[in-house]
């Protein structure tokens, strides 16, 4: 029996940015911890939440920003405009805030069709209206042909916390239960299939959606939410690993309880991907105490974005290093670890 000991984090190997630094895995964490955090160093940033929660006068204001660079701009189930609004609304909702206002900064590439721009802005407006928020300020820049993939969008958002409960990783306790609202892996695959070179036919649609309404239903019902986190880049596994690390707990999820659509599972088999690490855009994890589970599931399943809500795991105990394990269908427990960067299609 050989004991494997954990070691200090490996130093940044790359002297330049590689794509994997944006992949939601270990390299991105290293970039944030070793380069970004030490320079901006402040206690609010250090909490590493999807939104910063700012006590201003007597209110708690949630504040967040995100940039959207998805290629292609239009994909099954959504487009970059809808994504730019949903993503930021969801980041606000994950701190328990009710979204109020958004910004929109456009970086446009010379030659981009105004017709497409109009279509994307209309999509943004429709998504924002449905959520009851307004896009109130913004910025426009144009860069030379070849410098951007048509357009990039940055949105920032503010919202207000109407709840007194602290919803963050630090509130997670042993014996809490992990729930999710929807099936895994659709957004990442839907986008990938639309890129050049992937000649697969499939019906997979992105799950891109604004979940702030569903979160609001949970808050209104006084569910004791300990933590919320959307399962975007890096998917379910990376998100829960980050949470387990921040909260210094051991979480375990059960393979048989994970909702994964057959089409997603099949494509993952072909490409050698693990659906647990694929990005979602309308799926979130909800961590609540055991006695709130049934009510929370009922509320989620009554909402169009929570039909497949399920209990997927538990917070087992405190663990200094933080750990996520998966109980396989054969009852064996194995570690889920951060990937270095994005998953790459395998050879055979």
């Amino acid at each position: 029996m050989t004991e494997i000991k954990l070691n200090c984090p490996v130093p940044l190997h790359y002297e330049r940015i590689v794509m994997a630094h944006g992949g939601g895995g270990r390299l991105m964490q290293q970039l944030l911890d070793d380069v970004v955090q030490p320079i901006f160093n402040n206690p609010i940033l250090a909490q590493k939440n999807d939104s910063a929660v700012l006590p201003i006068n007597s209110a708690n204001i949630a504040f967040t920003t995100d940039s959207y660079v998805v290629k292609p701009l239009f994909f099954p189930g959504g487009d970059i405009g809808k994504l730019a609004v949903c993503g930021t609304l969801n980041d606000l909702a994950m701190s328990g805030a009710k979204p109020l206002y958004l910004t929109c900064s456009l970086i446009l590439e010379e030659g981009f069709a105004i017709k497409d721009l109009r279509r994307l802005l209309t999509s943004m407006q429709a998504t924002a209206s449905a959520a009851g928020v307004s896009i109130v300020t913004g910025d426009t820049k144009v860069v030379e042909h070849g410098k951007a993939d048509g357009l990039y969008i940055n949105t920032a958002g503010v919202g207000i916390l109407e709840t007194k409960q602290a919803i963050n990783a630090q509130a997670i306790r042993p014996d809490d239960v992990i729930l999710i609202n929807s099936d895994l892996g659709r957004h990442g695959l839907a986008v990938m299939l639309e890129r050049d070179g992937f000649d697969f036919k499939s019906n997979i649609q992105s799950d891109c959606a604004d979940v702030s309404g569903l979160v609001n239903d949970l808050l209104q019902a006084n569910i004791a939410i300990h933590c919320l986190r959307d399962l975007t880049r890096g998917g379910l596994a990376s998100t829960l690993i980050e949470l387990a690390t921040s909260a210094q707990v051991h979480m375990e999820i059960a393979h048989i309880d994970l909702p994964i659509h057959d089409d997603v599972q099949s494509l993952c088999e072909i490409l050698g991907f693990d659906p647990l690490y694929i990005a979602n855009e309308g799926c979130f994890a909800l961590i609540v105490p055991e006695d709130n589970v049934e009510q929370a599931l009922q509320i989620m399943r009554n909402h169009p974005l929570g039909k497949q809500a399920n209990r997927i795991g538990t917070v087992k105990q405190t663990a200094e290093q933080g750990m996520l394990t998966l109980k396989t269908e054969f009852g064996i427990s194995r570690v889920l670890d951060l990937l270095s960067g994005e998953q790459l299609p395998r050879i055979c």
């Binding site: 029996m1 050989t2 494997i4 570690v335 670890d337 990937l339």
Partner: peptide
């Protein structure tokens, strides 16, 4: 082994 067994004895 790194991905699935790093924290375990073997």
């Amino acid at each position: 082994y790194y991905r699935y067994r790093r924290y375990q004895n073997d």
